[in-house]
Design a protein around this nucleic acid. Sequence first.
DNA 1: TCTACCATGTAATCTGTTACATGATTGC
DNA 2: GCAATCATGTAACAGATTACATGGTAGA
Lengths: 192, 192
Amino acid sequence: MSIKHAILGLLHYKDMYGYQIKNHIEENFAFMWTVNYGQIYTSLKNLTDEGLIRLEEVVPSDSGGAPHKKLYSLTKKGKDEFKKWMKTSPEKKVIFRDHFMMHFIFFGFVEAADAVKFIDEQIQIYEQDLASKKEDLHRWKERGLYVSLARELGVSYRELYLNWLYKTRHTITASTSKEPTSKKRRKPLKNK
Amino acid sequence: MSIKHAILGLLHYKDMYGYQIKNHIEENFAFMWTVNYGQIYTSLKNLTDEGLIRLEEVVPSDSGGAPHKKLYSLTKKGKDEFKKWMKTSPEKKVIFRDHFMMHFIFFGFVEAADAVKFIDEQIQIYEQDLASKKEDLHRWKERGLYVSLARELGVSYRELYLNWLYKTRHTITASTSKEPTSKKRRKPLKNK
DNA sequence: TCTACCATGTAATCTGTTACATGATTGC
DNA sequence: GCAATCATGTAACAGATTACATGGTAGA
């Protein structure tokens, strides 16, 4: 549903091909939207059939054996549809499925050591993720007000989550007071 | 997939019926998981067929015309399956689809007044939501460490989101300096 | 040598969602 | 009088995910 409008929106910046659109969404919107190739290519097909986008040109791929890139552009109808969508109130629905959290609420049923192990895994993921996201923060300044504001929310959320993981880990190790906290204790991030 | 394990987990506390499970998840896990009746009743059916749960008893409904409540309980197999699931690392995948944010990143294509209007709508939703969530915070203390820790993350996230909305609204009205900010300006929440 | 990256596409499958049907009671 | 709550269930549909096929180059 909404993925179609995301494509229409992105094509306002420049003509794009499927692979590029997928990567763009993955890299930039991952904290608020996730997609896979199946969705992208079928959406591209449907949008073309509906006359909202058009295959503009086919350019050879950069590297060897890959198929040609198929650059799509917006049609008048596509621009109008996007404008109409932008005028309507955003859907209120939020879909959020964090498998770690689903596990987490049942941690009371396993030993604290297992819980801590899973939390440490999660900490590692979020630390790496945050580091890479912060590295290219400057890139987002160039892409306009709204994109960089959205980016900030994404980074803030990860910081919040990570701090919560630290705090939670500490609470668990303290309350069970088995595993030494000293070795793994970390300073919480500042809430800039 | 994971919804099945959520049901198995909940049935560790007490026997439950479909309607109750749906409401429980809606009220308690809404910030990390959403479900609908279709899913619940089909999951209940599948879990029964797989021998992981069992229809324990059918009790008359509290009020009039509603069908009888069908209380389900865990079988040995169900308990084992849940234990096995709890021992495995949580899936890394996070699915996140915030329709408002999808709209937001394209706000550069509409007039600032429209953007502000949509932001105000979103602010209203989150203010109400937060207020109701905070009201029954005390209830969560009773439900054990992990459930209340999860709850805290949920509330913190909403606070973060809301503060970000305030800040964003301010940034937009300031940069366009058309609409007066005075009337609608709000104090940011303290980051307790 | 093996993996990752580039790039498209589709079929099969699995989930998720909506809409409907039933029907008494409570509160506005 | 109307909407909401209680409670179950399913059929139809929409959406998401996986797995596969193709194939060359660059870097670990």
